[in-house]
């Protein structure tokens, strides 16, 4: 399923970037190219034998400086299904946080001749910093409050599978926009693809000047949901709140929890999405999260593996000497 609106240029011109550090800097046709590339992996992942050894002999290092289960697992499976040797380096947040250590770690990984490095780090900009220091493609698996590009891509893929096109789609993103890299990457990709993006949060969780990113700002969840085609809920990071940003989780739910009732305000076929892990009963009710027709939450996880396979494939083509990419 390729998009009719664009036909991607041949070879590396379709995606001329060495790294995937953020959605910022990607042209719409480049985003669509990655989505198109992921489709084959969606199909493969539904087969009984889920392997195609495109990346055989290549080493992929997943360097996670911040705790992660889902994203790490998703990248690991993606690499393995493509036949790469995948190594996970989990660095506890506490032990390596500051100092030259980050650059030193990057240099160390580089010296081991990794063919791609996937990085998650708690500081905005950290992934770019490492990308500038290593000689192989770097994939951002989340840096601070900055970007989480593969999440935005898998979300876009999920939306496209259900809605076919982005133009004019109303997407409501609700939750802790301030601290969310998922929100930033999604805003960038969805607005670039032509969707109308709304963001909704209490003022304390809404970053200043966010409207400059071509979104509509809401504090009233009901108004934000009206006529929405997609409702994307963000995880409330309870450990961050402590009464500083919101009075309590139950008060948050009172104003911003996605209940079945509230979902009725959105379009009848509105999709429900959540990047996980969910706080059931706080930002999203169980009967919404598990709603068979509406919830895309498990589809997102499925698309995640395919999307990351596509990213690893595309970014390693130069190293593999793929035709038109060498």
């Amino acid at each position: 399923m390729t998009s009719a609106a664009y036909s991607s240029p041949a070879g590396s011109a379709a995606f001329p970037h060495r790294d995937l550090v953020g959605i910022a800097g990607l042209a719409p046709h480049e985003i669509l190219y990655l989505l198109d590339e992921a489709e084959q992996w969606v199909a493969l992942n539904r087969e009984a034998k889920k392997r195609r050894d495109l990346l055989e002999g290549l080493t992929i290092i997943n360097a996670f400086f911040e705790n992660s289960t889902r994203t790490l697992l998703s990248f690991e499976i993606a690499g393995k299904r493509l036949g790469a040797d995948v190594v996970n380096m989990a660095v506890a947040t506490s032990s390596v946080k500051k100092g030259e250590t980050l650059i030193d770690t990057a240099m160390t990984l580089n010296a081991m001749h990794a063919d791609a490095i996937v990085i998650r780090h708690g500081s905005s900009g950290a992934v770019q910093l490492i990308a500038d220091k290593v000689g192989c493609p770097v994939l951002n698996a989340g840096d601070g409050q900055h970007e989480h590009p593969t999440q935005a891509l898998l979300d876009a893929l999920t939306i496209r599978q259900a809605k076919r096109a982005f133009n004019g789609l109303v997407v409501t993103i609700c939750g802790d926009i301030l601290h969310s890299r998922v929100a930033r990457s999604n805003i960038l990709s969805l607005t670039s693809l032509g969707a109308d993006v709304r963001v909704c949060a209490p003022p304390a969780l809404m970053p200043q000047a966010i409207e400059q990113m071509n979104v509509q700002v809401f504090h009233d969840f009901g108004a934000a949901l009206k006529g929405a085609d997609v409702v994307m809920m963000l995880r409330l990071q309870l450990e961050r709140m402590q009464g500083q940003f919101i009075p309590s989780p139950r008060e948050y739910r009172h104003l911003y929890g996605l209940t079945l009732d509230r979902l009725g305000t959105a379009k009848p076929d509105a999709l429900v999405m959540h990047p996980g892990p969910m706080n059931r009963g706080i930002e999203i009710d169980s009967n919404v999260a598990d709603h068979l027709e509406r919830s895309q939450i498990t589809t997102q996880v499925e698309m995640g593996v395919a999307m990351r396979m596509a990213c690893l494939d595309v970014l390693t083509r130069r190293a593999r000497g793929a035709e038109g990419w060498a």
Binding site: S124, Q145, R184, P207, Q208, A209, I210, Q212, M213
Partner: peptide, 15 residues
Amino acid sequence: TAGEMATRLGLPSAP
């Protein structure tokens, strides 16, 4: 400083 640049970069900011 809180504003478009800090928001885009995801940097902790203050008004």
